[in-house]
Simulated assay, not measured.
Amino acid sequence: MRLIDGEHLDTLLGERDFDIRKSHNARWIDQKCTPDVVTIIADCILEFLSDKEDDTIFTSMDIWHNDYTVQNVLDIFKKPSPKEKSARNEYDKFFQQPMGMFSYAGVLEKHKKGNRNFYKLSEKALLEEISLSERNALKFLIKYITKVLCDSDIYYLFEEFFRLQNKDAYNNLKRGFTSFTQAFTPINGDTEVWRIFIKVINPLAYSKNSAGTERGMLSKDLITYDMLMYNRDNFRDIYQRKPKGITRGSHVTPSLPRAKYIQYLTDKAMKNVKLINRFYNFGLSEVAGDDELATEAHHIFPRSDFPQIAYFLENLINLTPNQHRNHAHPNGNYSVIDREFQKICLIAKLGTIRKSIENNWGDYDFNNFLFVADTGYSTDIFSKIATFDYDNVISKINLI
């Protein structure tokens, strides 16, 4: 896996010529191509295709009329139902723009018939990785944007801005990007170009720990993660990784809309933990002793008792049906937890996390694991452990 961080994405992008002066494609990126939107559109596409052949042809309407999409877009992005006729134009943009970007990048393959766009998967594994998290979507966007700008021979304008970080360099970049876009694409108006400009400059600014653009001007401060999102004030406190030092009490019980989003995150995490295990562990159990395939994702600390950590990958472990139904939940009673096996699962998960971190797979977070352990055991001893002190974590688990 790790196609985004490894050579696969670099090779994929390197094999394509993204020069806008040749393609005249104004929609290589657009307003809705933010990390949070891109990752959920990737997830919705994969969910739509989950019971279909990989070469299935689909349209954006197929995706946004799928029940899974309807439920989650309503809950997450506070949109009207995709089934309402009045919402069609909004959903066309919401889905077409990221899908258009995916097709230009080579992740999807697009064919046009009349005025309709038809798609099929081209890079399933890469789309799966993008669907895992906003962080992955952002990494993809940064590499993709950089390659397009380099191929179009305008990256030097951005380099100059990031080097100088002043108003003159910002205005020069904005004018240059506007003139270039209007000269080589069908876009004529300044406002439309500037809306796209935001989605180009700010991911790069974030990656370089630099100022970018805000409210049409040079930002006063460095571009932060939340500034890149479509819903800047929506659920940031829930699904952004919790930094070490924040108490469990600060991670408050969410309101009903947020609870729905947590349910989406939990369902998605259960899918993703299986996907990660399939790539890195051949689909086997994370707990040694059973040679069957691990087809079930188990919450180490039950989600009914600990909803605040139900969506953490670090609280989910891949088990075989036998391990899940007879060891984790004795006699198949899902209301009962075997505490000794829970400890075994927790230590086994720590082993998976250690392997992920040491191999730079990037899917798990050590501090998230400490938060999970503190929450599940109703303590604060794990948050005091030094980063990557795995032996101390195991010692504390055994003591408890």
Score class of each variant (00 low, 15 high):
residue 5 D to T: 13
residue 12 L to I: 12
residue 24 H to W: 07
residue 28 W to H: 09
residue 29 I to G: 06
residue 32 K to R: 12
residue 47 E to C: 10
residue 49 L to E: 05
residue 49 L to C: 04
residue 50 S to E: 02
residue 50 S to Q: 11
residue 59 T to Q: 08
residue 60 S to P: 00
residue 71 Q to F: 02
residue 77 F to Q: 07
residue 78 K to P: 00
residue 82 P to G: 00
residue 83 K to S: 02
residue 87 A to H: 06
residue 90 E to R: 14
residue 91 Y to T: 01
residue 94 F to Q: 04
residue 102 F to E: 01
residue 103 S to R: 03
residue 105 A to C: 10
residue 109 E to A: 13
residue 109 E to P: 04
residue 117 N to H: 14
residue 119 Y to M: 10
residue 129 E to W: 00
residue 134 E to Q: 15
residue 137 A to D: 07
residue 153 D to N: 13
residue 164 L to C: 13
residue 180 F to M: 11
residue 185 T to E: 09
residue 185 T to I: 14
residue 186 P to M: 03
residue 186 P to I: 11
residue 187 I to F: 08
residue 189 G to A: 13
residue 211 A to Q: 15
residue 212 G to V: 02
residue 214 E to D: 07
residue 215 R to V: 03
residue 217 M to G: 10
residue 218 L to D: 02
residue 222 L to E: 07
residue 222 L to Y: 08
residue 225 Y to K: 07
residue 228 L to I: 03
residue 228 L to H: 01
residue 231 N to Q: 15
residue 238 I to M: 10
residue 239 Y to H: 01
residue 239 Y to W: 15
residue 245 G to S: 02
residue 246 I to L: 14
residue 247 T to Y: 06
residue 251 H to L: 14
residue 253 T to G: 02
residue 257 P to I: 03
residue 258 R to K: 06
residue 259 A to F: 08
residue 262 I to A: 06
residue 263 Q to K: 14
residue 266 T to Q: 12
residue 269 A to E: 03
residue 281 N to K: 07
residue 289 G to V: 01
residue 298 H to L: 01
residue 299 H to K: 04
residue 300 I to P: 00
residue 303 R to L: 01
residue 304 S to L: 04
residue 308 Q to T: 05
residue 308 Q to M: 13
residue 310 A to S: 15
residue 317 I to E: 06
residue 319 L to R: 05
residue 326 N to S: 12
residue 326 N to K: 13
residue 332 G to F: 09
residue 334 Y to M: 14
residue 338 D to L: 11
residue 342 Q to S: 08
residue 346 L to E: 04
residue 351 G to C: 05
residue 353 I to K: 03
residue 382 F to I: 10
residue 385 I to H: 05
residue 393 V to G: 01
residue 400 I to P: 08
